[in-house]
Design a protein around this nucleic acid. Structure first.
Length: 437
RNA sequence: CGGAGCGUAGCGCAGCCUGGUAGCGCACCUGGUUUGGGACCAGGGGGUCGAAGGUUCAAAUCCUUCCGCUCCGACCA
C-alpha cells in the first residue's frame, strides 16, 4: 500500500475529550472516529488491527474444537422473558420495537439465543460436549461510556458457549477455554493474568477474569510475582495437564478489588513478591451450570434414559477493547508499538523524497516490489514531505519495523530500524527474517 | 442518576462579562524554497456561531426551552 493512497486521517491536534493514551493515539492515528457516545466507526487501519486480533482469537478457538457460528445482533424479547433476564438486565439493555410492535432488543450477550439454538436440535448426551462461538457486535447501554474503545456501548466481542452432560465434563470444557485464552493473549503479545472473579449478572459459581497489566486499567489487582512464571506453553492440551495448569494458577494469590483480603494477601504472599497494580479486563469466563438451560428447557436424554439439563459455560473476549488495551500495554510516550502479530503493516519504507531527486523513491519502489513478492505486507511512504515529519508520523502509526532510504543509505546495505530504537544497516536478504522472526 | 463543564471552520481554541454582523494556531489548496526528528516565504478557500423560540433598531454575545458531548462518582466485557 502507498501511503498517499491510504485513507489515514492523522492529526497533530488531539481532541480535547480523549483522556487516556490509547484513545488519544487511536484518534490521532485515524483508527477510529466517534459517532456518538460510546459508539465508533472503525477506519481502515483501526479495522485492520481489529481484524487481525479477531483472526487470532478465531484460530485459537478453532484449535480447541470450538465451532464458529453467527447469531444476529437483534434478538426477540421472548427468550429473555423465558430466562427471566428481560427484567433483571435493566437499563443496560437497549430495547426496541419493530413495526408490528414486537419487543426486540440489541443483544448485550447471547446465552438465551444460543440455548434456544441448542435446545431445538440437540436431544442426546451422545451429541455432547459442544463448544460454539461467534464474533459479533454487542450493545450495552453503559451509564457512562469512556476511555475510547475500552468502555464502549457498542463493542465487538467473541463469545463462546459450552454444553456438557454434567459438571465434571463442563469443567473440562472450562479448562480448555482457559487454556485457549492464555494462548490467545500470548499471541497478542500480552501478559494476561487469570483471576477468580465475581460472576455479575451472567450468574454462576466458577469464573475467571483475564486481566492485562496497565496503569490506566479500571480494576485494581493484587497478586504474587510468581504468577508470571507460569507459562501456558508448558502444558499440553489434555485433561490432566489442563487440570494441573488450573491448579498451578489457583495456587498463586491473585484477586481484584472486590475479592481482595489484606490479611490473606499478607499471609500467602511475601512482601517482596506482592504486586499491587491496575489492569484491564480483556476476557471473562464463566461456568453457570443450568442457570439458563433449566428455565429455557434445554434438556438432553442421558444414558439412563432420564432427561437432564445441559451444563453450560460462557466465555467472552472483548475484541474491540483489546485494540485499546494493547495500546495501553505497549505505548511509549507518543509512540504506538504494535506487536508484530497484529500490526497494520509488517514494515514501512520511508524514503527521503525531493522534487529534484527521485532516486530514493525509485529505490524504494524496487524494495517495495521485492518485499511484496515475499508476501510481506508493506507500506510505502511516498509522500513528499520532510523526513522529520515522516518519522513522527510513523512513530504514531506504530508499524514495528522501518526501512529508511535516505542520505545514510549505501548501495549494498539497507537501513533498518525497529520502532523507537536505533537503526542498523543490514543486507536486504536479512529483512524478511527480521520482520517475520 | 447525582455533581461539574463544554458546544464558534476538519481539529485545538479566542471572542460572550460590557450586543454593532467572526478571529487565531494546526490541517487544507496554489506557487516557490527546503528535506534525518513535527520546515520557511507569499497567496488562497472554508462558518445557517448545536437547535428552536424570545428581548432588541441590531444577538455568537442577554433570556427560555430542547438536543448533543465531556469530566468526577455509583455500575460493568
Amino acid at each position: 500500500m502507498f501511503l498517499s493512497k491510504l485513507f489515514l486521517p492523522i492529526t497533530k491536534n488531539l481532541p480535547s475529550d480523549a483522556k487516556i493514551k490509547s484513545h488519544q493515539l487511536m484518534l490521532r492515528a485515524g483508527m477510529i472516529k466517534q459517532s456518538s457516545a460510546g459508539i465508533y466507526s472503525w477506519l481502515p487501519i483501526g479495522l485492520k488491527v481489529m481484524k487481525k486480533i479477531e483472526e487470532i482469537v478465531r484460530e485459537e478457538q478453532n484449535k480447541i474444537g470450538a465451532q464458529e457460528l453467527l447469531m444476529p445482533t437483534i434478538q426477540p424479547a421472548e427468550i429473555w422473558k423465558e430466562s427471566k433476564r428481560y427484567e433483571d438486565y435493566g437499563e443496560e439493555m437497549l430495547r426496541i420495537k419493530d413495526r408490528q410492535g414486537r419487543e426486540m432488543l440489541y443483544g448485550p450477550t447471547n446465552e438465551e439465543l444460543i440455548t434456544d439454538i441448542f435446545r431445538s436440535s440437540i436431544k442426546s448426551y451422545k451429541s455432547l460436549p459442544q463448544m460454539l462461538y461467534h464474533i459479533q457486535w454487542k450493545f450495552r447501554d453503559e451509564i457512562r461510556p469512556r476511555f475510547g474503545v475500552m468502555r464502549c456501548r457498542e463493542f465487538f466481542m467473541k463469545d463462546a458457549y459450552s454444553f456438557d452432560v454434567d459438571e465434571a465434563n463442563a469443567k473440562i470444557s472450562y479448562n480448555k477455554m482457559f487454556y485457549s485464552y492464555l494462548k490467545t493473549f500470548k499471541r497478542l503479545g500480552l501478559q494476561a493474568i487469570p483471576m477468580a472473579a465475581d460472576t455479575g449478572p451472567i450468574g454462576g459459581d466458577l469464573s475467571h477474569e483475564f486481566i492485562i497489566l496497565a496503569e490506566t486499567g479500571e480494576s485494581k489487582i493484587y497478586t504474587d510475582k510468581s504468577i508470571f512464571k507460569i507459562d501456558v506453553n508448558n502444558y499440553n492440551f489434555d485433561i490432566k495437564s489442563l487440570e494441573k495448569m488450573r491448579n498451578d494458577f489457583s495456587s498463586v494469590y491473585a484477586a481484584t478489588d472486590d475479592k481482595f483480603e489484606q490479611i490473606k494477601f499478607d499471609k500467602l504472599v511475601t512482601k517482596q513478591n506482592q504486586i499491587i497494580t491496575k489492569g484491564i479486563e480483556v476476557g471473562h469466563i464463566f461456568y453457570f451450570g443450568d442457570k439458563y438451560s433449566k428455565p429455557l428447557n434445554c434438556f438432553i436424554d442421558n444414558k439412563d434414559g432420564k432427561k437432564n439439563s445441559v451444563k453450560m459455560g460462557s466465555y467472552g473476549i472483548g475484541v474491540s477493547r483489546l485494540v485499546g488495551a494493547i495500546i495501553e500495554a505497549n505505548y511509549e510516550k507518543e509512540v504506538m508499538k504494535w506487536p508484530k502479530s497484529i500490526s497494520p503493516f509488517d514494515v514501512v519504507i520511508i524514503p527521503s523524497i525531493s522534487k529534484n531527486n527521485k532516486e530514493n523513491l525509485t529505490k524504494s519502489l524496487k524494495l517495495y516490489d521485492d518485499l511484496k513478492k515475499q508476501n510481506i505486507d508493506v507500506l510505502l511512504d511516498d509522500v513528499d514531505e520532510n523526513m522529520s515529519q515522516k518519522f513522527k508520523k510513523h512513530d504514531l502509526i506504530g508499524i514495528p519495523y522501518q526501512i529508511i532510504v535516505g542520505s545514510k543509505s549505501t548501495e549494498s546495505k539497507i537501513e533498518f530500524k525497529e520502532i523507537n530504537s536505533e537503526s542498523s544497516f543490514i543486507d536486504f536478504k536479512e529483512v524478511k527474517s527480521k520482520i517475520k522472526s
